[in-house]
Amino acid sequence: MDVAAIIDNLPLYFKGLGITLSLVSGALVCGMVLAIPIGLLASVRNPLIWALPKAYIYLFTGTPLLVQMYIIYYGTGQFEALRESFLWPVLKEAYWCALIAFALNTAAYTAEILRGAIEQTYYGEIEAARSVGMSKATIYRRIILPSAFRRALPAYGNEVIFMLHGSALAGIITIVDLFGAARIVNSRYFVPFESFITAGFFYLCVTFLIVWGFKLWEKRWHAHLRPRDTDAAQKVGKLPVSKPG
């Protein structure tokens, strides 16, 4: 074990951690902004409306994130027209490419979670809202979305952890995130085991923090469920079970 190489490079790891966290939080925010309309439209019972959002979800959940990132980073460089367009200052930076890839990817998964949650809305709630004369928009805003968000929370917690883990791919396209830092340490000192275990430990800590955060969040949002539904209470605060394919 070469502990000295790791200790000497701890600042590099912490810097990497900062990049990882900024990438993940950026992607989650942009992803959510995209996911809400996409998930909503995908849940509407009209093929003309759901076709496009569902195709988007299928495309991004059906291919590896690594391939999506390669297409956005290396793929866009193939076209001269794109290289001379106004988009290039953004696409030129590896950081923005990774952020775009992550945001588009997590948007698809989040939209799928939302769609499922919206479609599970208990019909009685909608009927009740109609009977007091709410408009369609109000029903969405006051009834469907709030309860869907609540139902989607555990699955979304999973997605956040998967996004954190997926962000390790940024290290592949020259970004020095947590994983990128591990790669640099490995290649300088030839200590693959130590360098990657260290990165793994950092990721593990962040994962536990996220799990803990969602536990608190769910406690708040699911307070009304606590005494009755012991199953849901048990689910709280666990690592992800599986990602929706």
Binding site: Y74, G77, R83, W88, A94
Partner: peptide, 11 residues
């Protein structure tokens, strides 16, 4: 090879 790709791309 990847470095060349990014050179062509202007990165």
């Amino acid at each position: 090879d990847e470095a060349y790709l990014d050179a062509v791309a202007g990165r």
